[in-house]
Amino acid sequence: MTSPTLTIAKKEYRDSARNALFITLAGFMVLLTAVSILVASFSFQAEVAQYNAALSQLTATQRAGAVIPAPSYYPLLMLRGTIEYLEIIGAVLAIVLGYLAIAKEKGSNTSRLLLTRPVSRAALIGGKVLGTSLLILTLLALLEGFIILSITAIGHVAFSSPELLKLTLSFSYTYFYLLFFFCFSAALTLFFKDLPRALLLSFALWLVFVLIIPQIGDTMDPDNQVPGGFFASMHTTQDQQHAIIAQFQNYENFRNALEVSSIEKHYERLVFATLGIKGMYNDKSLGYIMGDKWPDLALLLAFYIAGVGAAFLFASNKRIMASSP
């Protein structure tokens, strides 16, 4: 005999996997992944072509001894675009799933019937969280498989074991990030009687926390005011740069406070470090990366726990049954 939580989880998984909205968005996510890998590979190709042209020019002018750094190929660095799409579009997908999970019960009044059965509210929400967790994990596993196959086919180089581990770990962080948005949207849909308003508010908060706040933090960065970087244009050393920025600590604190208020920034910092997209962590061991990035992991998990907690907190009988007239 299966528990009510498992039964609801299975039903949730089946319903969402068959939903046209989910299928469209999941297909779109795969398309975006393919586009970003394709663009990254052509960008690298252009970089190699530029290097070869510069090298032949040096050879022609008999300055072959001059050293220019050759572009190095790291398969995980091809994933910057994919991760950014998971941050933006993946969150939309999770919001839609969270909305559908609650709206379908409220809209069709099946929640009233469900609550007449010996099913606790915790089992109802727990089942939905579990079912969606399995669905998101399935989607992420498929996406990871697609990434491994396509990058191996394009680059003709197999992933090493540490690279595979880093990739899998990054996708585990993605699960926590996406599930936060699922729970957050489900909690708002439980909270509001007016379903479209709940969906609109979820999207409004997505805009603020995923697009606007990180964008403000980025555009307020003094180094981003000039193409190529302000400090690079001034030819300052790293030490001089740090000393100068230290004089504007209040401004930097405000900018940083904006960034850390968004779960997206913690997820991005953690995954960019793990995959080596952030230059200083490229080719470093997981232990070294974790030593530096554990606060971002802790905050990502804190957001996740808060999201799951909110979904359970708003699951009162009154709220589950309340629906638009």
């Binding site: 941050e87 990180p214 980025d218 555009t219 193409p227």
Partner: peptide
């Protein structure tokens, strides 16, 4: 994608 959100 994120670079496309920086006006500079």
């Amino acid at each position: 994608p994120v670079s496309l959100l920086n006006p500079v």
